[in-house]
């Protein structure tokens, strides 16, 4: 398997407070990784650094994506190179319709690949296909991006965008939070359908729940800016059973 994402001893701070204290993670094509951890452990900081949001200052280490130094790419270049971040809190953009937004994004991706923009007809066809796949309400695509969407609609909309852009590496930041069981199944179903041999997914989550539907190959526990434990899917179950207290005690040597 080819390496896709290689994070080495990554350190990052927000206003002199060290948030990530040396993260090392290897993600290969075809793999699903879950990163679990309590609130404030650095999960979202890690996700945003991969997507290119300058939320934290990188103070050490490296991120290599498909052999390239990720820090050389700006957020739009990372997207076009195949990185997708499913936002924990998707942003509302009043006045910008979903259709216009998606069409612009998709055509930027196509331009990057040396393809012609999609015709209006083909675009609408694709839109319909993907809408059915993630069971998103048809009307949502005529509305402004995320504006007035319910929490569940916003999360489904993230998966819908992922389906449209077909990324190589998807990072889903707490996509399960705030979802009822039906929405959770739809989201998981979407992710599973989009899974291919040559792409990879990183699921960031607080709870084990989503992992009942998306089976990870690896589970990592992030605690206080470090990956303190890695294992297979059974680690998620153990965490669910014993709680983060168990990790805390292990780390603190109790």
């Amino acid at each position: 398997m080819n390496s896709m994402l290689s994070i080495k001893d990554l350190r990052a701070s927000i206003e002199d407070k060290e948030i990530l204290k040396g993260i090392t993670l290897e993600v290969k094509e075809g793999e699903v990784h879950a990163i679990m951890g309590p609130n404030g452990s650095g999960k979202s900081t890690l996700a945003s650094l991969v997507a290119g949001k300058e939320l934290a200052d990188v103070t050490g280490g490296s991120i290599t994506y498909l052999g390239k130094n990720l820090f050389d790419l700006n957020p739009e270049e990372r997207s076009k190179a195949g990185i997708f971040l499913g936002f924990q809190y998707p942003t509302e953009i009043p006045g910008v319709t979903m259709v216009n937004f998606l069409k612009t994004a998709l055509n930027e991706h196509r331009k990057h690949k040396g393809l012609e923009p999609l015709s209006a007809k083909d675009f609408l066809k694709l839109l319909r296909e993907k809408k059915d796949m993630v069971e998103i309400d048809s009307k949502l695509t005529n509305r402004s991006v995320n504006a007035g969407f319910s929490g569940g609609e916003k999360k489904k909309n993230e998966i819908f965008q992922m389906a449209m852009l077909e990324p190589k590496l998807a990072i889903l930041d707490e996509t399960d939070s705030g979802l009822d069981i039906d929405a959770l199944k739809i989201v998981a179903n979407g992710v599973n359908k989009l899974k291919r041999k040559d792409n990879a997914t990183i699921i960031i989550t607080h709870y084990q729940r989503l992992l009942d539907y998306i089976i990870p190959d690896y589970v990592h526990v992030l605690f206080d800016g470090r990956i303190v434990k890695s294992g297979g899917k059974e680690l998620a179950l153990k965490l669910e059973e014993k709680g983060y207290e168990w990790i805390r005690n292990q780390v603190n040597g109790n």
């Binding site: 290119g52 949001k53 739009e76 076009k80 612009t104 994004a105 930027e108």
Partner: peptide, 18 residues
């Protein structure tokens, strides 16, 4: 909102215009 658009591949200049 700018970052959200950029994270979907829309260049910053275009995102600002939109």
């Amino acid at each position: 909102a700018l970052f959200y658009m950029r994270s979907r591949g829309i260049p910053e200049k275009e995102a600002r215009l939109i």
